[in-house]
Design a protein around this nucleic acid. Structure first.
Lengths: 161, 161
DNA sequence: TCAGATGGTAAACCAGGTTGACCTTTCTGG
DNA sequence: CCAGAAAGGTCAACCTGGTTTACCATCTGA
């Protein structure tokens, strides 16, 4: 593999670059969402709304999908409800469960996010070329375990500032 | 650029892949650090220790380098001191400043982190090939602004669990 | 039928951020 | 030279997104 032809690269740069890329996309999406009528949407909300899904879910389902405790999921749902992105209703089939469903506004922010992510990806493709961007995606898939999407313990990425 | 030859890819996957890569590296480094005698090191500590640097720094310097408030930097320094990674001393040249310096243990964790990041990068290179990993790094540099390393508002990456 | 699994909530806590207010010390310009 | 601005630091209150422990209500199956 012909190593040694170039100056070796420091390993600590890799996480910084990955994070910078992630952060660039996330910040971009939220800047645009704010412009499109969703100034209060935060990164964590998107993940949670995604975890709820079109058919709704119980708080404990959300907790499992996100890899966090059910209490944390419950608090997040509280915030989504307060922001008008989700609503809670009783489950007629199981009196313990409280079904969380997306509101129209919740579906709206999700649809807009998806569209914005597509245009941001297109921006990257315009710089790198589609082939190279695909290679980047494929390579990342190759070195990560699929379960690395867990969201525990994180305030994440700005948003307040 | 011959697009259209493949199925289009959803834009929302890109941030997930970047994050998964970042998280894989960070988790890997901290798992290994824990094995090497640093079980209490957390991702935020590494960034802060890096910001202190070999010559020491004032809290407000750290704040500027990390893109956070000086109060937040002060609290982080408190934790580094409590963990034995840093120490505070008065600056004889300026009675307002309190110079923060790395302890031997702080230098140790930093050196170990760098070594572990190098081996993790080598693992990736073994899977992807050095050329392709370089391409990935170069591409990320091309699509991110250098300032995207800011660390504000984040509990980051697990570590508790 | 009843013991255990499951769903949900409450309370206390933590880490890592934020603002605002304030004091001390240094720098600077009239 | 000295007054006021700028810079360093800390305190206090607060926010968000997590955690653990404890507990109650409901469902399920041997």
């Amino acid at each position: 593999m012909e190593s040694g032809r170039h100056r070796p690269r420091a390993g600590y740069e890799l996480p910084l670059l990955l994070f910078a890329g992630f952060r660039t996309l996330i910040d971009g999406v939220h800047a645009e969402l704010a412009r499109q009528g969703h100034p209060d949407a935060r990164p964590a909300h998107g993940f949670a709304l995604q975890a709820i899904g079109p058919d709704g879910a119980a708080a404990s389902d959300i907790a499992r999908r996100l890899g966090i405790s059910k209490q944390a999921a419950g608090k997040t749902v509280d915030r989504l409800v307060a922001l008008g992105y989700a609503e809670r209703s009783d489950d007629p089939a199981d009196a313990r469960r409280r079904l969380v469903r997306l509101t129209a506004r919740g579906r709206d922010v999700l649809a807009r996010s998806a569209a914005i992510f597509d245009t941001l990806r297109a921006d990257w493709a315009a710089v790198l070329g589609e082939e190279r961007l695909r290679a980047l995606e494929d390579d990342l898939r190759a070195v990560t375990v699929p379960g690395a999407f867990r969201l525990d313990a994180a305030g994440w990425i700005g948003g307040t500032s």
